[in-house]
Design a protein around this nucleic acid. Structure first.
Lengths: 216, 216
DNA sequence: CTCATGTTAACTGTCGACAGTTGGCAGTAC
DNA sequence: GTACTGCCAACTGTCGACAGTTAACATGAG
């Protein structure tokens, strides 16, 4: 579950290729040419193929027999399906966090919320980074590595979807309030409220993505 | 999401190897020798490696750098972590099923329950097959392919765990009652009850597995 | 002009061989 | 007898080349 040391070429290539996809350097719909990319990365096709297969299992690439791999395109149904899964996982994580959190966890969550509010107060759109930090802090509090891993994979796909949007919608007041409500429920150890709060939050984010997907 | 036609050797090998693992033909803890297995399957190492990597992403194999792959061993913590994930997914599926089910779905669920009860009434341990059929019918009713896919992966790991148990505990009266309660909640469209019923059911199954893991 | 068909180039799927690493074993110093 | 050291075999990681398939283009019949 922890591959911090990537010695093998294939392992390194997974990270490199993942970055190429998430940054949009390989845009959605684009097909991946094995020989060209392998040459470009200075490696052989073997390790590259393994990396492609790996990212395909993460949902960042789609494999078509005899036609190679391509980056999946954003799609309304896809957003809905993805958020169903995300909601299932993160609502459960919120419940677990509410029942397992320590004082340190709550402190960390409040910290992230405060930083978000400060950034928002200055008028700046608070960066996506802080949103990810909040959800990460919540996952840490849930202490369920397996769920955390799955959430990471889903969030990755969400990042890919966001990259495909014309106007990257800022997280607004509503999201900040959602986060605060979540922290309150978690701090109180109220699993039911935590579940509900997360459900509301994700429902809002999903709606936001769907509207900005229509305008695209 | 649907690769029913496996033309490539690698694709076929995934299925073959998966079966070898799930049936226990490659027992937990056993290391997989690439050259030997490739020769045994009559293929080259390339496709076999891809299949190994794929199954590793499904959690059916564990990869160790420069030391190859091996089948993971059953472990209490593993069971707990796995059921946390399973509960997150299947409870959500139960809710969705309760809100989306059609008459046909309910009929199918009742059908499976009836067959299970009949088998149980004859005194025979009702086969695991029927349990899987029930959960499959529930997933069909939920109409969330993404969640269904994840559940499939988790259930696969559960199957692997069961294979490692000395005494494969029969599903008893309690599980049958759980299933009936689930169907009732789903038929009534009661999402909250469906969620609770699934949670209870999985909690029971988990406890069952943990006890029979201790005795192993 | 349209459609069918043969051809060809590009790409994926597969293979066999080489290189690098790991773990065990024997041999030797102490 | 024990611990260290240097070999050795086995296995994984990587590479380059060949085979099979696909899709597009050109060509010719209707």
């Amino acid at each position: 579950m922890t591959p911090p040391l990537h010695l093998s070429l294939a392992g390194q290539t997974v990270d490199v290729l993942r970055e190429l996809v998430l940054t949009g350097e390989i845009p959605p719909g684009e097909r991946v040419n094995e020989v060209e990319l392998a040459h470009r990365l200075g490696i052989s096709r073997g390790p590259l193929r393994e990396a492609i297969r790996h990212l395909s299992s993460e949902g960042l690439l789609v494999l078509v027999p005899n036609k190679g791999a391509h980056v999946p395109k954003a799609d309304a149904d896809e957003v809905r399906a993805l958020f169903e899964l995300r909601s299932a996982l993160e609502c459960a994580a919120a419940e677990l966090a509410a029942s397992r959190r320590t004082d340190g966890d709550v402190e960390r969550l409040r910290e992230v919320c405060a930083e978000s509010r400060n950034t928002h107060r200055t008028g700046a759109r608070f960066p996506y980074r802080l949103d990810l930090a909040f959800h990460q802090a919540l996952l840490d509090a849930a202490r369920s590595p397996r769920i955390a891993e799955q959430v990471r994979l889903v969030q990755q796909r969400v990042v890919l979807l966001r990259a495909g949007l014309k106007d990257d919608p800022p997280h607004q007041q509503a999201s900040l309030d959602d986060h605060d409500a979540l922290v309150a429920a978690i701090a109180a150890g109220d699993t039911h409220q935590a579940n509900r709060a997360m459900r509301r939050h994700l429902s809002r984010v999903r709606a936001q993505m769907l509207t900005s997907l229509d305008s695209a």
